[in-house]
Simulated scan of single mutants.
Amino acid sequence: MLADVSVTGQGGLSRRLTRGLLDQVTPGLRWVAAVVLLGVSGLFGGLDTVPEPPAETVAAGTTIHGGPWEVTVEAAAVYRDMGKLRLEKETNRWLVVTATVRITAHESTMPPSDLLTLTGVTGLTSPTPAEEALDRDKSRLRLLQPDMPERILFIWEQSGDAPVPTSITVAVEQRTYREDSLSGAWYWMDVDGKGEDEPAGRVTVPVRTDLPPLIASPSPSVAASPSTSPKPAANRTPSAGPTP
């Protein structure tokens, strides 16, 4: 019913509402529904994009609900040495965010590489973490089980030429459980289908900067043979090091 159709922006019909209505129509009738919706939208000024409200910024220790997961960002710190993990340049540093992640979906889930993104920091070698590790045993992050919270180390490498941040803002990615308009199957997917959603929330956290001395190169193991290099191969990604 037209009375139930909300309009937004300058009077235009919401694109997300339009897509949702089309997804509920059988494939054979979608072209008919599309024509009707376009006609209705013309009465209200066309299809306007509905801007999402900005994500709330909360304090460290606040749980953010992101759909199939809950994330509690706890702390951030800078380190020079992370055990076996190697910097691209010895003058660089590690920026480590510690967060507890609980899977709220019914199935085991591997968090996406962009589960956490950072603002307020420059010089990152990659926007996604160089390594993600379980705090309890420093093993590499794998599938997380439902309703079993894990404390995780999210580790970025930052250029030594960039300033050490005093605080950072951590954005938590979100997903929504919806029907795929092509296959009809239900998945945890981006809300807008383009990966351009607002995050579920943001956390501003101070950065601990009590840096240990720079270690130029590790000492070779006593048990290592003379031909063994103390450093791993360039294309090898070792496991994470000690707890921040």
Results as ranks from 00 to 15, higher is better:
R15C: 07
R15W: 05
R16H: 12
R16N: 11
L17N: 11
L17Q: 12
T18R: 15
R19I: 06
G20I: 02
L21I: 15
L22E: 06
L22M: 08
D23C: 14
Q24Y: 08
Q24T: 07
V25M: 04
V25T: 09
T26A: 11
P27M: 04
G28C: 03
R30C: 08
R30A: 03
W31Q: 14
W31T: 11
A33Q: 03
A33D: 01
A34I: 01
V35W: 11
V36F: 13
V36E: 08
V36Q: 06
V36W: 09
L37V: 02
L38Q: 14
V40H: 02
S41P: 11
F44A: 05
G46E: 05
D48H: 15
D48G: 13
V50F: 03
V50L: 14
P51W: 00
P51G: 03
E52T: 11
P53M: 09
A55C: 06
A55E: 06
T57H: 01
V58I: 11
A59K: 13
A60T: 04
T63W: 07
T63N: 01
T63K: 14
I64S: 05
I64Q: 03
G66E: 08
G67M: 03
P68Q: 08
W69Y: 12
W69S: 07
E70Y: 01
E70V: 00
V71K: 10
T72H: 13
T72E: 15
V73R: 11
A76W: 01
A76V: 02
V78C: 14
Y79N: 13
Y79M: 14
Y79E: 15
R80K: 08
R80L: 12
D81K: 12
D81Y: 15
D81C: 10
M82G: 13
M82D: 15
G83S: 06
G83P: 05
K84Y: 10
L85K: 07
L85Y: 06
R86Y: 06
R86A: 03
R86N: 08
R86I: 08
L87I: 05
L87M: 08
L87W: 10
K89E: 14
E90M: 10
T91V: 12
T91P: 05
N92K: 03
N92D: 15
R93Q: 10
W94G: 09
W94D: 11
L95F: 05
L95H: 06
V96F: 09
V97D: 04
T98H: 06
T98G: 09
A99I: 07
V101E: 09
R102G: 01
I103E: 07
T104N: 06
A105V: 02
H106P: 04
S108Y: 14
M110P: 01
P112N: 07
P112F: 12
S113H: 12
S113G: 04
S113L: 14
L115P: 07
L116Y: 02
L116G: 04
L116M: 10
T117I: 02
T117Q: 12
L118Q: 00
L118S: 01
L118R: 01
T119P: 04
T119G: 07
G120V: 12
G120D: 01
V121T: 05
T122K: 09
T122Q: 13
G123K: 02
L124Y: 08
L124F: 01
L124A: 11
S126R: 10
S126F: 00
S126W: 03
P127R: 08
T128I: 09
A130D: 09
